[in-house]
């Protein structure tokens, strides 16, 4: 079976000018990244700030143009799409952003925010669209009587639900969720995580879940890739990766998570960047579990 999304040797370089007379410096934010996601799967891309996980997500949607590599969605080469074809393709691949405060237009009513993608993609007549918006509100657990409210009249968790309703408006098959709960309070995070899991089951969604919270990733992802300085250093089924991390960076990262149980003794592993070869290719360490060691 062809995977729903396939990313091959993706590279994104940013150039920064160093002044008039010196050559610009080049930063490789994404450094030859490959992975694939099967339909209905939740794939976690984890890493710390600067690891390139967000850039990878945006390159897939071509919100920023990758420097090199291949992105295949349902077998088709996304990077070869014309602008018009790309716009059409985005109906099927949507993104939910981290910050529910800055990602919603404060001057639009919640109902209009959710309806906007339907208008842009010329879906249905006005009445049908309004009915669809009300349906989406119910789907994500919002009160359809609050359609006319503005974003600031909702709490953070509710705003994230609005962002989710908007992303789901066009029935996408792939949802890229970029840190969708990290700006929310713990108790509200749990509600949104439950909602994401429910929606996946009901709508047969495929998730690319970009996150730094390993507890969360372990809870909801089927497979995980760990990014470090632009490269995937380890990838595999969640269970196997968490049970037997093979890469020194993964080990350090896992050991750094504070465990909410004072009875568990701490064993911190500190990463020594000299302890591994950053150019080592991924190799299989157990079934489906690869590490760059």
């Amino acid at each position: 079976m062809t995977p729903l999304l396939e990313v091959r040797n993706l590279v994104k370089e940013f150039t920064r000018s160093q002044g008039l007379f010196s050559a610009p410096s080049v930063v490789r934010a994404v450094d030859v990244v490959s992975f694939s996601i099967a339909e209905g799967e939740t794939f976690g891309l984890v890493g710390e700030s600067g690891s390139g996980k967000t850039t990878t997500g945006r390159c897939i949607l071509r919100l920023i143009e990758p420097t090199a590599g291949e992105v295949r969605f349902k077998g088709e080469d996304v990077l070869a799409f014309s602008r018009a074809r790309m716009r059409a393709a985005r109906r099927d691949m949507q993104i939910v952003f981290q910050d529910p405060y800055s990602s919603l237009n404060p001057r639009m009513r919640a109902g209009d925010i959710v309806e906007e993608p339907l208008i842009i993609h010329r879906t249905g007549r006005k009445v049908e669209r309004r009915a669809r918006v009300a349906e989406l509100f119910e789907l994500v657990g919002l009160d359809p009587t609050q359609l006319a409210r503005y974003p600031h009249q909702f709490s953070g968790g509710q705003r994230q639900r609005i962002g989710l309703a908007r992303a789901l408006a066009l029935n996408p098959s792939l949802v890229i969720a970029d840190e969708p709960v990290s700006a929310l309070d713990v108790s509200v995070q749990a509600q949104v995580i439950n909602l994401l899991m429910d929606l996946q089951e009901r709508l047969k969604l495929t998730y690319l879940f970009i996150a730094h919270d390993l507890r969360l990733v372990r809870h909801i992802c089927d497979r995980v890739a760990v990014m470090y300085l632009g490269k995937i250093v380890e990838t595999g089924p969640t269970e196997s990766l968490f049970a037997a991390p093979a890469h020194p960076y993964t080990r350090a990262l896992l050991s750094a998570i504070p465990i909410p149980d004072p009875a568990v003794p701490r064993q911190r592993i500190v990463l020594d960047p000299a302890s591994f070869d950053r150019t080592a290719p991924l190799r299989e360490v157990s079934s489906g579990h690869h590490a760059a060691v």
Binding site: S155, G157, Q158, D185, V186, S187, V188, Q189, A190, Q191, I193, N194, M197, D213, R215, L216, R218, H219, I220, T238, E239, P260
Partner: peptide
């Protein structure tokens, strides 16, 4: 108890014991 139930953990894929509503 609700705060503790809200932390991802336990069996993967299971619903978290979230606290309903907001502060």
């Amino acid at each position: 108890r609700g705060l503790m139930g809200s932390i991802p953990g336990g069996a993967p894929g299971t619903r978290l014991r979230a606290i309903q509503g907001t502060v």
